[in-house]
Design a protein around this nucleic acid. Sequence first.
DNA 1: ATGAAAGCGCTAACAT
DNA 2: ATGTTAGCGCTTTCAT
Lengths: 348, 348
Amino acid sequence: MSKSKYNPNGEKVSIRDVARAAGVAIGTVSRVLHDNVSVSSNVRERVLDAIRQLKYEPNKIAQSMRLGVTHTVACVTRDISISGFGTIVNAAEDVLRSRGYTLLLAITDERKEREIEVVRVLTQHRVDGIIMTTSSEEDIELADMIRNLRIPVVLLDRDIPRELDAVTIDHRRGTAAATEYLLRLGHDNIALLTGRPSMRPARERIAGFEAAYAAVGRQPNPSQIRVGGFSADYGFREASALLSSSSRPTAFIAGGMSMLPGLLRAINSNGLKIPDDISVIAGADSDLALLMAPAVTAVRWSGSEEGRFAVELLLSRLEGHKGDPKRVMLDTELVIRGSCAPTTKRRK
Amino acid sequence: MSKSKYNPNGEKVSIRDVARAAGVAIGTVSRVLHDNVSVSSNVRERVLDAIRQLKYEPNKIAQSMRLGVTHTVACVTRDISISGFGTIVNAAEDVLRSRGYTLLLAITDERKEREIEVVRVLTQHRVDGIIMTTSSEEDIELADMIRNLRIPVVLLDRDIPRELDAVTIDHRRGTAAATEYLLRLGHDNIALLTGRPSMRPARERIAGFEAAYAAVGRQPNPSQIRVGGFSADYGFREASALLSSSSRPTAFIAGGMSMLPGLLRAINSNGLKIPDDISVIAGADSDLALLMAPAVTAVRWSGSEEGRFAVELLLSRLEGHKGDPKRVMLDTELVIRGSCAPTTKRRK
DNA sequence: ATGAAAGCGCTAACAT
DNA sequence: ATGTTAGCGCTTTCAT
């Protein structure tokens, strides 16, 4: 059979083997592979047959080498065991695949050294572009490294470096709406748990929080704004501390993707009941928020859109689009559920 | 400055540019790159300098071309917005990175055509190995396709094709323990919601379910075993149907990674209370299970270990290990929380 | 210790 | 319409 004839050891079959089997030159094989017009249907058939016989798969490594593009895009992010991130990556993969790209994934654990190392390796792999979150927008070394990249980069929920495209979330409006809602329910001691202001999502949430207070002529108590990290553990620690402090908040805003679990743990272990003892708003929606009893009021946006837009921005650059940095900001919506109660109704 | 001298357009810098800048042959540059002994410290320094000056990054595409390996591994899975899958992929990426590999990710949505297409593309990218779940262990075409791959494949929670390495989970024991526990609480009408038996996790759960019944000399009612899919939606639909059937179960086992959300939705919308009206066990642990009030009793295993073992098996093959298929089965543990009550205590 | 050169698989420019 | 060939960046063998 032709397989043993032209590819005796069952080894890797190359375009050369196909050419030999079809009795044509390799250039011709390449032509049929790329639907190039100038090839007779007779020859085309023979080549296609040989390809099937030999189970030939074009070598994209060699193509990349020759063409200077790899048709790969990397996504660099903190932790995809957080389902919000998974949703973004999922959506990104979907549109990338449908456009002929393959996704490389790198997890950074929000650590700068990892981010730098990982981007270096991706550069060596000659990915065509990168979609990423960074652990800090203030770090010069990080910013320089990204800026000096020779390939387009799209930021996820970051807006520095300014010269890059980015898709961001309107956390400011989301958090303002959440705060306003709590204020209207009579809460005047609201705690905001979020990450470090060196990251946009935290900055924006804080700004929204303060804006809502300002809109009613007040100011939040700075000690009720906790800005140490986006992790569930941080949420747990700070919530625990606040709950046992003398000025215990009557409401919490969990300003991060994985902060609600930590906050709930703290509330549970204090034996508090939502919403009777304490009101809660999640700064990101999740199954957990939706399915708790009572369900948790949440600031919602579409992670799928976030992923999709990021890819669109990137692909547009890869297709040669020049011009100023593009920013896409996604709306947020306050989904009111059962986790907040008016203060007047509160027992004690 | 040397940058403009040797790399005038600020374009891609190659080993040739480095060689020129250092005044040596490209072979020599390659030698210092690979810590090859035979290079004088004098020359080595000059080369290293040039590399720094030019910000040279070796081209892994060219290396792959030359060496025939890409140092990339793909993970092919259903949906990483499910946090259980994210945990596996996270862990896999971590050990891959630490061993010098880069992860490619492909999402299949559990659809056969996608699995086939995606594996073809990954083959073209010449990934060194693949870690994957398949949508069916009975599909001949799928099995053949995987078997004919020229690279090592490690299955995640599947055991067919038999000739492949795999890491599996002891769902049988986990589900048996869950069932036994419910039986001991007095439940005799337990529903099992799980996926199609063409996938190992479903088969094993059913087997465990039946084994636990058999151990007390009974048999489950076949109509209480629903085996149509692993999705939250499926869980919701079947749970809803069962809850409004004449022989409403007194307990549910949600046998899948994302089935608990669906089940809880159904229970909520029926206005039922856990555990008073209905007992629930999750077939996989999650934040949701942990943080519900009451917390949901769950069958737990380590997704991180699953990901890590899968990579270890794969790397061992990549390092040349021959021999029979290796199987690693991870233990499960029934974590008892507050979502199950004895039947005698049930109101009604 | 270092240089020179072949060749990995492919595409595209150039011949015919 | 088809064949031939240079060259993408690299590693490694063979000289020297």
